[in-house]
């Protein structure tokens, strides 16, 4: 059972291995704060949608399962969106349209379809936590690289340091996201973490 959890972090890491959920990954990895915020939002949605779908998996017939999944996921995304607006408005603003776009993050619908709709609640919850954590960690790795090179320093919730070199703004531009992702994927392939 514990495998359901650890699989998500390395073996089926959603970003590096499955190459899913790329839009938010590239778009909001400009700062570590954003990466943590987006990661937490995705974990929340993934956890509760997996839980719900696993609970009602025997009631939903095959033909209407996708609309059912979509409504469930969209409901939790709306909860995240409203809560962010109410309690963390600055994070809500910097994540922008990528908050509602969590609905179409292939990772979440993918896990609903491939795992939660076929497995008991406990395993689905562990799967959600593992995949969510794998997503968040990958996001943080990418954002550390981009923030460090692009702004010449690191800051997490206001704490951090700056390095004595002039930053290459290139890395926080969209082009920098593509480059960092490409090089990371290539290196991970080289050392054999991914095929």
């Amino acid at each position: 059972m514990i495998k359901d959890f650890t699989n998500g972090i390395v073996k089926v890491n959603p970003i590096f291995v499955l190459a899913l959920g790329l839009c938010p990954t590239l778009a909001i990895s400009t700062s570590i704060d954003n990466a943590i915020g987006m990661g937490a939002a995705v974990i929340f949605v993934l956890l509760f949608s997996n839980l719900m779908i696993s609970l009602i998996r025997n009631v939903i017939s095959k033909e209407v399962r996708i609309p059912c999944f979509i409504v469930i996921i969209a409901t939790f995304v709306t909860i995240v969106s409203l809560s962010l607006q109410a309690y963390l408005p600055s994070l809500y603003e910097s994540l922008g349209i990528y908050v509602p776009l969590i609905v179409v993050n292939c990772i979440i619908l993918g896990r609903a379809e491939a795992f939660a709709s076929k497995n008991p609640v406990s395993r689905s919850v562990l799967d959600a936590l593992g995949i969510g954590l794998g997503f968040t960690l990958s996001l943080i790795i990418i954002s550390i690289i981009r923030e460090l090179l692009g702004t010449g320093g690191i800051s997490v919730f206001g704490y951090g340091f700056t390095l004595p070199f002039s930053p290459a703004t290139f890395f926080i531009m969209p082009a920098g996201a593509f480059l960092v992702m490409g090089v990371l994927l290539g290196l991970l392939k080289r050392v054999g973490v991914i095929r």
């Binding site: 531009m173 969209p174 082009a175 593509f178 480059l179 490409g182 994927l185 290539g186 392939k189 080289r190």
Partner: peptide
Amino acid sequence: VPESFEGLPIAFITASLLSLSFI
């Protein structure tokens, strides 16, 4: 292309150059 960069990695790097030119 170096073997480990074949496929997706080199596609991302190409996209990076393309994105840069769209700036």
